[in-house]
Design a protein around this nucleic acid. Structure first.
Length: 649
DNA sequence: GTTGGGAGAATTTTT
DNA sequence: TTCTCCCAAC
């Protein structure tokens, strides 16, 4: 039995050992939120709750993995049967068992962002007459997503953005409808559908609902402040029977409201669960007091919110030195300053992996990479595109999908499109002639397809076709996933990469990693059903890029959430970039940006550096002044040590 | 119908 | 600077 009393502080101990019943843990940054959750899991398991009766919901795969690993080692590997993961993951898992109840196949395909954009584009093309003025597919996609996550109709989203759009709103509504219909016909779900349909399943099917209500004696939710309406509702339903729900979160760190996250959920939790206990964690073990002073002062700028659940980060660590603020001439000087600072930190004994550079948006980092390369510091950028969204990875996955599942138009489309001389129209015709299906196990389908292709394409497809034939052997055996992937490379894809990409070797490395992942998972099928839920944030955790372990981290603030580094450098802390003028234009409200700043600041353990160049250049050669961020200006005097220009540090 | 080249536009945050 | 779209040539 773990010695909880000595391993935890008083508040953490209260939360971990709380009796059954609703519990809201307000855990400010760096106060041991993960620790509390993992010990809670361990505590419950040690006190006789079977792990399969626990549900642990997280916001990212990374958080899930981290917590499960830690809880697992605390309990001596006793939690393998625990359900844990993102909301999307858990919905996926429930739907794989029961999707047929709501009109889907259990092996439905998940559309990732790219897939759904393509589908939306098709809808746009078939509905709208003048494509010129019509919003781009990405815009429509985010409108549809917004509607889904807010739980409102597409109409009201369109209405809200009407002045910036120059088109007939009814056309947008029509596109959204058509997209929904197309998805239905294809039997596919996008990310939002996983939540929508997971919830639908629970609401409409008493048997399913009661099964899970019974099963999950304890529901634990991480990052509760970032849940949207659907997610909160799902938690409420799942916990309704046993009433043992533990929501952990920090309203100061709600940074996903643009995605439908609604921190009213955390504010109203005590209303929805009137007998809930509230425990506050305020002792911060992470950061030096001078850093916490900045964080505390900054979040007070959100006056209204601050009144509701006032929290003050209280330092446990000893005093160090004040965070510094560099006012720089321009991005160039910032690059020199940042790389110079990093070099000095390395001389002082820090490792590259101890340092992170954070920024508001991906494109803010472009100028900096050059300088880091210059001084020869290893670095990793958590880029915007995930491994599983890369074109070559998706190509190969399409091939695997076609091998494994019978009819999947999307994969068919993607794979056939790789052949030379085959484009969109040809594919449509082929698909129609095949009768709207392609079953890889049917010799007839395979022969028909081969016969329909024009010679050049047939020549290429033959090899793939033969390979598919050996995947499903009459004996019922299949070649292993990694092997079939290898063969695919050999007979077709390596050649394709060589003539289509300028960096085929790099891409082949990605594919080799994909094969490794495949080898680790239980079956090809299972891997394919999960793969679209994996994102770039998880890649390091999964071992891709594993050789870059000791490197400076360049990351957006969003992706840095939940992480910490001894040294954190925030770049482009200027008006218009952080806070971002785009996000401000949408809702005329800087509170979420301020929370984002709070998140950024509280990532730092020892040292925090804020950089604000005074000049920004536009692509057409123009330049304009920018002012340091309001989040710096509004701080009380004396919290930062101010430095001007890089030559003076 | 497909493909590739060239001109033009454009940059938030992500499960 | 990179991505996207459009058009002209196969």
């Amino acid at each position: 039995m773990l010695d909880y009393e000595n391993l935890l502080n008083n508040e953490q101990f209260d939360a971990v050992t709380a009796e059954d019943g609703p519990l809201l843990v307000l855990a400010a940054a760096g106060t041991g939120k993960t620790r509390t959750l993992t010990y809670r899991v361990a505590y419950l398991v040690e006190h006789g709750v079977p792990a399969e009766n626990l549900l642990l919901l997280t916001f990212t795969n990374r958080a899930a993995k981290e917590m499960l690993e830690r809880a697992n080692s605390l309990t001596g590997n006793a939690i393998s049967s625990l359900w844990g993961g993102t909301f999307h993951h858990v919905c996926n898992r429930m739907l794989r068992k029961a999707a047929d109840r709501i009109g889907f196949q259990r092996d439905f395909v998940i559309l990732d962002r790219d897939d759904s954009c393509k589908l939306i584009e098709q809808c746009i093309n078939s509905i709208t007459r003048n494509k010129k003025d019509f919003p781009k597919k990405n815009v429509i996609a985010s409108m549809i997503g917004m509607a889904a996550n807010r739980g409102c109709g597409i109409e009201s989203v369109v209405e809200g953005q009407l002045d910036s759009l120059k088109v007939d709103p009814s056309e947008i509504v029509a596109v959204a409808r058509m997209y929904a219909e197309r998805k239905n016909e294809l039997g596919m779900m996008d990310f939002d559908d996983l939540l929508i349909n997971g919830l639908k399943l629970l609401k409409e099917h008493q048997f399913v609902r009661e099964f899970y209500q019974e099963k999950f004696r304890h529901v634990l939710v991480d990052e509760y402040q970032d849940t949207n309406r659907m997610q909160a509702e799902m938690v409420d339903i799942l916990a309704a029977r046993n009433r043992s729900v533990m929501a952990v979160g920090d309203d100061f760190q709600c940074i996903y409201s643009w995605r439908g996250a609604n921190f009213a959920n955390i504010m109203d939790f005590p209303t929805r669960w009137p007998d809930c206990r509230i425990i506050k964690l305020e002792r911060n073990y992470r950061s030096a007091p001078e850093i916490l002073d900045v964080a505390n002062a900054s979040i007070r700028g959100n006056a209204e919110q601050f009144r509701r659940y006032p929290k003050e980060l209280r330092a446990v660590r000893n005093s160090r030195r004040k965070p510094s603020f560099y006012l720089l001439y321009d991005g160039e000087e910032q690059g020199i300053a940042v790389s110079g600072l990093i070099r000095r930190y390395l001389e002082d004994g820090y490792q590259p992996k101890d340092v992170a550079v954070l920024y508001r948006a991906h494109f803010h980092v472009v100028g900096l990479e050059f300088h880091l390369r210059n001084i020869g510091v290893p670095y990793v950028v958590t880029s915007g595109v995930g491994v599983f969204e890369l074109a070559h990875v998706k190509d190969v996955i399409s091939f695997l999908r076609m091998c494994e599942f019978q009819t999947d138009y999307l994969s068919f489309n993607r794979l056939l499109g790789l052949l030379s001389g085959v484009g969109e129209k040809t594919i449509e015709k082929l698909w129609a002639k095949l009768g709207g299906k392609f079953d890889v196990t049917s010799t007839q389908d395979r022969e028909t397809l081969l016969g329909l292709l024009r010679p050049a394409a047939r020549e290429q497809w033959q090899h793939i076709d033969r390979l598919m034939g050996t995947y499903h052997l009459p004996s019922g055996d299949t070649i292993s996933g990694p092997d079939v992937l290898d063969r695919f490379l050999e007979v077709f894809y390596r050649g394709y990469m060589a003539r289509s990409f300028d960096n085929p070797e790099d891409r082949e490395d990605d594919l080799r990693e994909l094969a490794n992942q495949l080898r680790k998972s239980a079956s090809v099928r299972e891997f394919l059903q999960e793969v679209s839920l994996l994102t770039n944030v998880d890649q390091e955790a999964m071992g891709i890029d594993g050789d870059k372990n000791n490197a400076v981290h360049l990351s957006t603030v969003h992706q840095a959430k939940g992480l910490e580094w001894p040294v954190v450098i925030i770049i482009w802390a200027v008006e218009g970039m952080f806070p971002s003028s785009r996000s401000m234009a949408e809702n005329d409200d800087d509170t979420e940006e301020r929370r984002l700043f709070y998140v950024a600041v509280t990532r730092a353990r020892d040292d925090l550096v804020l950089c604000a160049p005074s000049m920004r250049y536009t692509r057409d050669g123009g330049a304009f002044q920018c002012k340091p961020s309001r989040f710096i200006k509004e701080l009380p005097k004396g919290l930062l040590s101010e430095r001007y220009g890089f030559r003076r540090y």
